[in-house]
Simulated scan of single mutants.
Amino acid sequence: MKHLTLAAAFALLAAPALANQCPADMAAIDAALAAGTDLTEEQATQVQALRDEGAQQHEAGDHAASMATLAEAKGMLGLE
């Protein structure tokens, strides 16, 4: 029972941490796009679409999906 309570407490504490990472990831993507990249126009458009999708997911409260989407965009930019 103690382990279950401890696991639940960690899960509750981790959710805000995940929520706070999304804006930092979006800012990193925005900065990289503003600085210029070697991406083609099509790839840059795809990165921007992923960034926008991640922002929508974040606003909807789906932070796990947001982080995954933003990670894909960051990967395309070589930020990871």
Rank of each mutant, 00 (worst) to 15 (best):
Met1Phe: 15
Met1Ser: 14
Lys2Tyr: 13
His3Cys: 13
His3Leu: 15
His3Met: 14
His3Asn: 15
Leu4Gly: 09
Leu4Arg: 15
Leu6Ala: 14
Leu6Gly: 08
Leu6Phe: 13
Leu6Tyr: 12
Ala7Gln: 14
Ala7Asp: 14
Ala8Tyr: 09
Ala9Met: 15
Ala11Ile: 11
Leu12Thr: 11
Pro16Lys: 12
Pro16Asn: 09
Ala17Gln: 11
Leu18Thr: 09
Leu18Glu: 09
Ala19Asn: 03
Asn20Pro: 03
Asn20Val: 10
Gln21Met: 12
Gln21Glu: 10
Gln21Ala: 12
Gln21Phe: 04
Cys22Ile: 10
Cys22Ala: 15
Cys22Met: 11
Cys22Arg: 04
Cys22Gly: 05
Pro23His: 10
Pro23Glu: 09
Ala24Leu: 14
Asp25Thr: 07
Asp25Gly: 05
Asp25Ala: 11
Ala27Lys: 12
Ala27Asp: 08
Ala27Val: 08
Ala28Phe: 01
Ala28Glu: 01
Ala28Met: 04
Ala28Lys: 05
Ala28Thr: 05
Ile29Asp: 00
Ala32Phe: 01
Ala32Asp: 02
Leu33Cys: 04
Leu33His: 03
Leu33Tyr: 03
Ala35Tyr: 08
Thr37Trp: 06
Thr37Ser: 11
Thr37Phe: 06
Asp38Lys: 14
Asp38Val: 11
Leu39Glu: 04
Thr40Cys: 06
Thr40Tyr: 04
Thr40Pro: 01
Thr40Lys: 07
Glu41Cys: 09
Glu41Gly: 12
Glu41Trp: 07
Glu42Lys: 14
Glu42Asp: 13
Glu42Ser: 13
Gln43Asp: 09
Val47Cys: 02
Val47Met: 03
Val47Asp: 00
Leu50Met: 06
Leu50Thr: 01
Leu50His: 02
Leu50Lys: 05
Arg51Pro: 01
Arg51Trp: 02
Asp52Phe: 04
Glu53Asp: 12
Glu53Ile: 10
Gly54Gln: 03
Gly54Thr: 04
Ala55Gly: 11
Ala55Leu: 13
Gln56Ser: 15
Gln56Tyr: 08
Gln57Lys: 08
Glu59Thr: 07
Glu59Val: 07
Glu59Gln: 11
Ala60Phe: 06
Ala60Asp: 09
Asp62Val: 03
Ala64Gln: 08
Ala65Phe: 01
Ser66Glu: 00
Ser66Ile: 03
Ser66Tyr: 00
Met67Glu: 06
Met67Ala: 10
Met67Val: 09
Ala68His: 06
Ala68Phe: 05
Ala68Asp: 06
Thr69Val: 00
Thr69Gln: 02
Thr69Ile: 00
Leu70Ala: 02
Leu70Met: 03
Leu70Asn: 02
Ala71Asp: 04
Ala71His: 04
Ala71Glu: 02
Glu72His: 07
Glu72Gln: 12
Glu72Asp: 07
Glu72Lys: 12
Glu72Ala: 09
Ala73Thr: 03
Ala73Glu: 00
Lys74Asn: 02
Lys74Ile: 02
Lys74Glu: 06
Lys74His: 04
Gly75Met: 06
Gly75Arg: 06
Gly75Leu: 04
Met76Tyr: 01
Gly78Asp: 04
Gly78Ser: 07
Glu80Pro: 05
Glu80Phe: 10
Glu80Met: 13
